[in-house]
Design a protein around this nucleic acid. Structure first.
Length: 524
RNA sequence: GGGCGCGUAGCUCAAUUGGCAGAGCAACUGACUCUUAAUCAGUAGGUUGAAGGUUCGAUUCCUUCCGCGCUCACCA
């Protein structure tokens, strides 16, 4: 029998002995007077004398995370609400039965205790226990108390254990909650209405990505998990919901990586009667407010590892830079690639091609397809030249029309659109634009995308006739934006993989699991 | 999908050139009524991810498979 099975069996037997002592093994509730965080904040300032002169009786519950047994007395720590509190159990104080119960407890068990607060000889705030109530058994051993759980695979597969033993993990997800709350607060305060639109869509539109496919049996139709809520939210703007937003999951059937998980959380917002500048300012405000709400300051730490050396950057969310895409290419043009380009270098496909040739000769190779539209090449060039330099919050605006099928063109430069993206920590975290609302222009853009599709671009947009019909009823001018909530969370918590800000990231199924058997039904 | 790397006790990690698989914590037994990584004495715990191969002998070398990580590709 493997060791963990032995322990499981042993603890099951202890559970029976606990029952024999007159305790319920899985009781339904415990009335406590304080949470552990309440006790820590309320009574940490009190001295031992103060606690003695005005006795504070408490009932608290928690998971046992440490036991130090000394003959007929013991110190233990309870953990609950992200805090730990020491409890002192003495045979004299809890009686024969209480002591017998205590000796049957293991690390990881849940108990409730009642008693009074005091300070030990070394000054630690503790509960002098007078009675113990058994609440629930941990039948499996917790990971080692000192090193915790470090195996990343186990941490993701058994997040519940990760959360018990690694307090910093709990902290990240509490911060994530504050982040989402703050984003809601900002959009609510600007009179946006929060809505929910379909996650299962007959056409996966609103972004450029490969979708997941599923099937509805009764209607006998394929459906796509949404890659973006965009086209539905804009239908709502047509319908007169002038300010709408949605926070929910998008699904993209693409590779995994430190910035990519197949399902991720996006906030999308649309505001009528404003343009990309208006929505840009609102987005900047929302992220700045979120940074303050999460960390209590607009500054967040961002650790970058290079050649085994850590550099800690301070991201300042109250100080944003703004460049057009073309300015950014000029600004970050590598010295090795010769003289900085000029604005006129973007004016014709030949001159753009010359830029790519110069860049590729000097720098790492950038993928380039001479048949692709010139705007697409410029966008790739931007990514290769500038993205790695965008550590501090930076807004890049004016994107090529060729890569922006849903944005409005600049009135004076039809090859460029009123679109922006926000970068920080070398990641794209947000994307917004003046929404295209001319139904005939939209149809032409979709048709251009269909050509890209024929050219082999599986991710190019499909035609969405109902969306064009909606626009033809008249959509007011509007600005819209998407914010990658997971990535913002990474930046605000110095997390360098998206799996550290998603509670249950996608992993391959465990061997022998139901999911694994479902994958290979023949093997059963 | 390609390349590189990792997988040893429940957890965190060792094992020299291919030569007896080991430690700390956790567990178990005992001592201990103010400890805090409690301490002290003792006990048990292993198909070294799986299968095969080379060898007198494999944790170590080779092949395949499984899982994970990094990276490239993909991913506005």
């Amino acid at each position: 029998m493997a060791l963990d099975e032995e322990i499981y069996e042993l603890r099951r037997q202890k559970l029976q002995q606990i029952e024999a002592l007159g305790q319920r093994t899985y009781p339904t509730k415990y009335e406590f007077t304080h949470t552990l965080p309440q006790i820590v904040t309320d009574y940490s300032p009190k001295t031992g004398e103060e606690l003695e002169s005005a006795r504070v009786n408490v009932r608290v519950a928690g998971r046992i995370v440490a036991i130090r047994l000394m003959g007929k007395a013991s110190f233990s720590h309870l953990q609950q609400g992200g805090q730990k509190l020491q409890i002192y159990i003495k045979k004299d104080a809890v009686g024969e039965q209480g002591w017998d119960l205590f000796k049957l407890l293991d690390l990881g068990d849940h108990i409730g205790v009642s008693g009074y607060l005091f300070r030990t000889r070394t000054g630690e705030l503790s509960v002098h226990v007078e009675s113990i109530t058994f609440l629930s058994k941990d039948l499996r051993p917790l990971p080692e108390k000192w090193h915790g759980l470090t195996d990343v695979e186990l941490r993701y597969r058994q997040r519940y254990v990760d959360l018990v033993v690694n307090p910093e993990v709990r902290d990240v997800f509490l911060k994530r909650s504050r982040l989402v709350q703050s984003l809601r607060r900002t959009f609510d305060s600007h009179n946006f209405v929060e809505v929910e639109t379909p996650m299962m869509q007959p056409i996966a539109g609103g972004a450029v990505a490969r979708p997941f496919v599923t099937h509805h049996n009764t209607l006998d139709m394929d459906l796509y998990l949404r890659i973006a809520p965009e086209l539905y939210l804009k239908r709502l703007v047509v319908g007169g919901l002038d300010r709408v937003y949605e926070i929910n999951r998008n699904f993209r059937n693409e590779g995994l990586g430190w910035r990519w998980n197949p399902e991720f959380t996006m906030l999308e917002a649309y505001q009528a009667y404003t343009d990309y500048q208006g929505i840009m300012n609102l987005t900047q405000e929302a992220i700045t407010e979120a940074a303050k709400a999460v960390n209590g300051s607009p500054i967040s730490k961002w650790t970058v590892s290079e050649d085994g050396k850590d550099t800690v950057h301070e991201l300042d969310w109250s100080n944003w830079q703004r460049f057009t895409m073309r300015e950014a290419i000029l600004k970050f043009w590598p010295e090795k690639a010769g003289a900085k380009p000029e604005m006129s270098d973007f004016s014709s496909p030949d001159r753009i091609k010359a830029l790519v040739t110069r860049f590729n000769a000097a720098h790492s190779h950038m993928a380039y397809d001479p048949n692709e539209p010139a705007g697409k090449t410029i966008a790739s060039l931007f990514e290769s030249v500038a993205e790695e330099h965008l550590t501090q919050p930076t807004i890049i605006y004016e994107f090529p029309t060729a890569v922006s099928p849903l944005s409005k063109q600049k009135p004076d430069e039809p090859d460029w659109t009123e679109r922006f993206e926000i970068f920080a920590g070398q990641m794209e975290i947000s994307n917004g634009f003046s929404e295209l609302n001319d139904p005939e222009d939209q149809r032409r853009r979709f048709e251009a995308q269909l050509k890209e599709r024929e050219r082999g671009d599986e991710e190019a947009h499909q035609m969405d006739e109902d969306y064009i019909r909606a626009l033809s009823y008249g959509m007011p001018p509007a600005g819209g934006v998407g914010i990658g909530v997971d990535r913002v969370c990474m930046l605000l918590t110095d997390s360098h993989t998206i799996r550290d800000v998603i509670l249950f990231p996608l992993l391959r199924p465990e061997k022998g699991s139901a999911a694994e058997n479902a994958k290979n039904p023949d093997h059963q």
